[in-house]
Simulated assay, not measured.
Amino acid sequence: MNQSLIFGDDVTVGENTVIFTAQQQGQNINCKISFVALGELSLLQVNIHNAAMAFEQVRFDIEELTEHAIKDELFEDDGSILL
């Protein structure tokens, strides 16, 4: 894991995504994973009711994917990362 990248404990469930924050060199980066991508990782049918639980089950994998996306500079127009 990249020591300069820190993941917060914040997890917010939206309509079709789970939103979380990464911090790199003091800058917050808003990150999102779609229910579809989360379902592929967790092998669950993800919905608004179980998304937070599914996220926690595969948090390490999500953080690793996010780390790679940030390293590869795969930012959205608004500066966020979307998995």
Rank of each mutant, 00 (worst) to 15 (best):
F35N: 01
V36W: 00
V36P: 00
V36Q: 01
V36G: 00
A37T: 01
A37H: 02
A37I: 02
A37Y: 01
A37C: 07
L38N: 04
L38R: 02
L38W: 01
L38E: 06
G39Q: 04
G39D: 10
G39C: 08
G39R: 02
E40Q: 04
E40F: 00
E40S: 04
E40I: 01
E40C: 02
L41Q: 11
L41R: 07
L41G: 10
L41A: 10
L41Y: 08
S42N: 07
S42V: 06
S42A: 11
S42R: 03
S42F: 10
L43I: 14
L43N: 15
L43K: 15
L43D: 15
L44K: 14
L44M: 13
L44V: 14
L44A: 12
Q45I: 10
Q45R: 12
Q45E: 11
Q45F: 09
Q45W: 05
Q45L: 09
V46F: 08
V46G: 08
V46D: 11
V46N: 06
V46Q: 07
V46W: 05
V46K: 01
V46P: 10
N47M: 05
N47K: 03
N47T: 07
N47Y: 04
N47P: 05
N47H: 09
I48Q: 11
H49R: 05
H49F: 07
H49G: 06
H49Q: 08
N50D: 05
N50E: 08
N50W: 02
N50I: 05
N50T: 06
N50G: 08
N50Q: 05
N50P: 03
A51Q: 01
A51W: 00
A51E: 01
A51V: 00
A51Y: 00
A52M: 03
A52T: 05
A52E: 09
A52D: 09
A52H: 02
A52L: 05
M53G: 11
M53H: 11
M53P: 09
A54I: 02
A54F: 03
A54C: 06
A54G: 08
A54T: 09
A54R: 03
F55I: 12
F55G: 12
F55R: 09
E56L: 14
Q57C: 10
Q57Y: 06
Q57F: 10
Q57A: 09
Q57P: 08
Q57W: 06
V58S: 11
V58K: 09
V58E: 11
R59D: 13
R59N: 14
R59S: 14
F60T: 11
F60V: 11
D61G: 07
D61W: 03
D61C: 02
D61N: 02
I62V: 13
I62F: 15
I62E: 11
E63Y: 15
E63Q: 15
E64Q: 15
E64S: 15
E64W: 14
E64M: 14
E64L: 14
E64H: 14
L65F: 04
L65G: 05
L65D: 07
L65A: 08
L65W: 04
T66H: 00
T66M: 00
T66K: 00
T66W: 00
E67L: 05
E67Q: 10
E67R: 07
H68Q: 14
H68P: 11
A69Q: 02
A69V: 03
A69T: 00
A69C: 02
A69Y: 01
A69W: 01
A69N: 01
I70G: 04
K71H: 04
K71D: 06
K71V: 10
K71N: 08
K71C: 10
